[in-house]
């Protein structure tokens, strides 16, 4: 069964149809890229999947269960992790504490008024950081971390509740080329090991063509192409609205 099934998704803002009847699905362990020009509806689409926006029509199913229109925190509890285009972490907490928060929330222990956080869920949090190569940074505040490291912290947070689906909005934006490759390789490895379905948007064509198993191309709210990287790269329509000649971006 597909992890995520999206059917006939629609959303309009003040008469402008941002997303028009989009359908697709993601399988366990699959890396699916969602690409398209700015304003094509990628973010709108994403925000409907994790509950930040309510679709006008259509359905979103997670492991066969209808999750359309649920609150983001409910969707998270059902097993959808999320990373953001501009990293969102708790700047006044250390890397470890950030991951502890996700674990504590997963275990529904956030109401505690007495026992200090320092002694709660520290070991599993450390293990997660270890897996992402961030153990050495555990005690540093997120507020002063380098951008590439923050992206890894976000991934650790997103993995804390053992998600079935990861939604990653431009996971490598603002990272150096080498960091991009290693982060995506790590993501792909974890996804395959744990059978997590990954849906990501991205502007870096090296990342898209290097790491996606399948690609969806959006333009003006519609799905204009879908398929394996080679096929999408060769599609003349995709070249016209999005990829261009590839001379300055590496999409050749």
């Amino acid at each position: 069964m597909a992890t995520l099934e999206v059917a006939g998704l629609e959303k309009s803002f003040g008469g402008v149809r941002a997303v028009q009847g989009i359908s697709f699905s993601v399988r366990p362990g699959e890396m699916l890229a969602l690409i398209g020009p700015n304003g094509a509806g990628k973010s709108t689409c994403f925000n409907m999947l994790n509950g930040q926006l309510r679709p006008d029509a259509g359905s979103v199913r997670l492991l066969g269960r209808e999750i359309t229109g649920m609150a983001p925190r409910t969707i998270w509890r059902l097993g959808v992790g999320r990373t953001f285009q501009i990293t969102a972490t708790f700047g006044s907490m250390t890397v470890l504490e950030n991951v502890q928060m996700a674990l504590l929330s997963h275990h529904r222990r956030l109401g505690g008024l007495w026992r200090p956080v320092a002694r709660m869920d520290a070991a599993p949090a450390r293990a997660l950081l270890e897996r992402l190569g961030m153990a050495e940074q555990a005690a540093r505040p997120c507020g002063i971390l380098a951008y590439g490291d923050l992206k890894r912290v976000e991934l650790a947070i997103a993995l804390a509740n053992q998600p079935k689906l990861l939604l990653m909005d431009e996971p490598t934006a603002g990272m150096a080329p080498q960091e991009r490759v290693s982060l995506m390789a790590l993501t792909a490895q974890i996804a395959r090991e744990s059978g997590i379905a990954v849906l990501f948007t991205e502007h870096d064509m090296d990342v898209v063509f290097g790491h996606a198993d399948r690609i969806l191309v959006l333009d003006r709210g519609r799905l204009i192409a879908e398929g394996a990287p080679a096929a999408v790269r060769a599609d003349p329509k995709v070249r016209e609205v999005y990829l261009g000649s590839g001379a300055v971006t590496g999409a050749h």
Binding site: G36, P37, N38, E170, A173, G174, H203, M205, E240, V241, Y242, L243, G244, S245, G246, A247, V248, T249, A251
Partner: peptide, 14 residues
Amino acid sequence: PSEGLAPVVVERMA
């Protein structure tokens, strides 16, 4: 100037 822009737009920027 090219950060976060679609490849076709990056070409126009160049």
